[in-house]
């Protein structure tokens, strides 16, 4: 019985999204096949990895991931430049965590200033993230979107509770938008529909089905992503065709495996290497599930995932 390759052709295609402006603009998505199977379709872009920085010093990050940034993380502008110039970041994700009411509770005006300052210091695309406080994110992201007008950033994250104001801000200021729902393909589809019903162009959306760290629900994110991607390709479901985000760093660097010193759990091995491997492995698995945009923290994990992408 001679072998004939069981190739698949799909009716759907993931939207190609371009962010940033000028020479350093970057694109992701655009493929009409399952992840990294170029022999049966086209994959115009490789996944994009953005370095995560934040508006306040990362005192909440575990020491092993604070360390690579210790000389620059006191100021978001220096930090952003370091990522772009020294680490060769292709995109930067600025998390305005300091605006959270339980944190520094920075004002929308302060946040807008940080966004402006960072934007004027870099030429790679910027992703602007709120503090994940649905209420506070609305005014913060409106101010941030205005401060970044026409810079073609990604604004996020719009959730069920606040999508109207954030989507309107993204639309008015020509940004892309992350729509996040919690680990459920139907919720994800519904939110994309609600946002597009406001007149927001579906080709400017990025779906965040919510990330989970390896060992902490990764299989849920993995399967929701696979199902979204299959719906986009096999059923040509237009609402499921925006590229997907895996917000890896934030979820990985808060669990025990990325923090516990080797002296506490000798069977887990070196803590620093373990943390890096945890972030990189989580990212690798989600790439296989269909993520096109990754937000990551540790330079060594980013480097390793970059190397994997090169080989795929």
């Amino acid at each position: 019985m001679a072998f004939t390759a069981p190739k698949e052709t799909y009716s759907g295609k993931v939207y190609n999204v371009t962010i940033g402006t000028g020479e350093r603009a970057a694109s992701f998505g655009g493929e009409n096949v399952l992840p990294f199977l170029p022999f049966e379709g086209t994959i115009p872009n490789k996944p994009l990895i953005a370095y995560e920085i934040q508006d306040v010093p990362p005192t909440d990050w575990p020491e092993n991931v604070q360390k690579p940034f210790s000389s620059v993380s006191g100021d978001p502008v220096t930090w952003a430049k370091f990522c772009q110039d020294t680490l060769k970041a292709k995109a930067i994700a600025l998390r305005l965590i300091g605006t959270h009411p339980d944190r520094e509770n920075r004002s929308p005006e302060d946040a807008a200033k940080t966004v402006k300052d960072v934007l004027s210091a870099i030429n790679v695309p910027l992703i602007i993230l709120g503090s994940n406080n649905a209420e506070k994110d609305a005014p913060v992201l409106i101010a941030a979107a205005e401060a970044a007008k026409d810079k073609n950033c990604i604004l996020g994250k719009a959730q069920e509770a606040n999508y109207k104001t954030i989507a309107a801000a993204a639309m008015a200021n020509n940004h892309k938008l992350i729509a996040m729902s919690e680990l459920d393909i139907n919720l994800s589809k519904q939110l994309n529909i609600l946002i597009t019903q406001m007149g927001f162009d579906k080709e400017r959306l990025i779906t965040d089905p919510m990330c989970s760290a390896l060992g902490y629900g990764l299989e849920y994110t993995y399967s929701v992503m696979e199902r979204i991607r299959l719906a986009a390709l096999t059923q040509n479901d237009l609402t499921m065709q925006p590229p997907m985000l895996a917000d890896v760093g934030m979820y990985v660097w808060k669990i025990k495996e990325t923090q516990a010193p080797e002296s506490d759990v000798p069977s887990w091995g070196n803590a620093e290497e373990r943390g890096i491997a945890w972030e990189a492995t989580t990212a690798a698995a989600l790439l296989m599930a269909g993520a096109e945009l990754l937000i990551m923290r540790h330079p060594k994990a980013v480097e390793a995932v970059g190397k994997l992408i090169e080989e795929l």
Binding site: G215, N270, E273, A277, W278
Partner: peptide, 17 residues
């Protein structure tokens, strides 16, 4: 290495759940 085992074991466990 132990750190690598832990990551790979965990991934395998997650995927085969």
């Amino acid at each position: 290495e132990k750190w690598k085992n832990l990551a790979l074991f965990t991934l395998r466990q997650n995927i085969y759940t």
